[in-house]
């Protein structure tokens, strides 16, 4: 249960926390983009340095961010193994039976791992340093220009905020149902395939029906409080850029320019 704290908002008082969530979202997008600029190891070091700096400025303990990697370790190992085995370029450096490993494979895999590391840590810093409510408002405001093309940005924002609101509730329900089924002899860890399927069903079906009830109740409550989709409504939470945000934007743009320069001239 403790693992669910990953990426959870930590209300601290820091430079990064005080930034406008839109600024942080845009910076995250810039970093995600920057990762794909072919600027080699120099570029990656620059980006990692930038992330380290944000981490320091956010006052978030590094161990909390590292925790975010735990559930992804299996996936990363899987990816790395596949990569190492599939890529057959460069010099052969190891061979055992049908397993052949090339140096390019290792290098590429390292690149991928670093990219994942960058993306995950950057998004973790974003979610840990931003109040989810403000983040939703930020997303809504950033999507607003798409409204001109009939994109239902308000509905999307409402959906995100409701999803965020109900994640803890659904986790709690899941826990309750698992406990109830465990008491009826379900073993979620071990068992044959058939038993496993049964175990999963015994969790999914009740969870689905509970969520449906929840959705129905929620819809009634929203309707009863006067919510009508697509109708105009005011917003309690508002956002304002201030001077810090403009500075951070500038730094972000400079970072990208620097990486592009590196990709052309330094390698």
């Amino acid at each position: 249960m403790n693992n669910f704290t990953i990426g959870k908002y930590l209300p601290l008082d820091s430079f990064v926390h005080k930034l406008d969530p839109r600024t942080k979202i845009i910076m995250l997008l810039l970093i995600m983009g920057a990762v794909f600029i072919k600027s080699g190891w120099i570029g990656y070091f620059i980006i990692l340095g930038f992330i380290a700096l944000s981490l320091i400025l956010s006052k978030i303990k590094i161990s909390y961010v590292l925790n975010a990697f735990k559930p992804l370790i299996m996936m990363m190992v899987f990816l790395i193994v596949i990569n190492v085995l599939v890529i057959k370029e460069g010099n052969l450096i190891f061979s055992y039976g049908f397993i052949k490993i090339y140096d390019k494979a290792i290098l590429d895999t390292l690149y991928i791992s670093v990219r994942l590391l960058i993306m995950i840590s950057a998004s973790t810093i974003l979610t840990m340093s931003s109040n989810p409510l403000d983040l939703t408002v930020g997303i809504e405001k950033l999507l607003k220009p798409l409204g001109r093309f009939n994109f239902p940005y308000e509905d999307v924002a409402m959906m995100i905020s409701i999803a965020l609101r109900f994640i803890p509730t659904i986790i709690e329900e899941t826990q309750k149902i698992m406990n109830a089924q465990r008491s009826r002899g379900v073993d979620y860890e071990e068992g044959k395939i058939k038993e496993k399927i049964q175990a999963v069903l015994s969790l999914i079906v009740p969870l689905f029906s509970t969520s449906l009830n929840m959705a129905e109740d929620l819809a009634s409550a929203m309707e009863a409080r006067g919510y009508i989709p697509q109708e105009p409504r005011t917003r309690y939470r508002d956002l304002k850029y201030n001077i810090k945000d403009y500075i951070v934007f500038l730094i972000g743009v400079l970072l990208v320019v620097l990486l592009v320069w590196v990709s052309y001239y330094a390698i």
């Binding site: 509730t169 929840m214 109740d217 929620l218 009634s220 409550a221 009863a224």
Partner: peptide
């Protein structure tokens, strides 16, 4: 008309 429902969780719309 205002209505207060049975389930305390399911009618809590805002995140705070």
């Amino acid at each position: 008309i205002g209505i207060v429902f049975q389930n305390p969780d399911n009618q809590f719309i805002g995140s705070s």
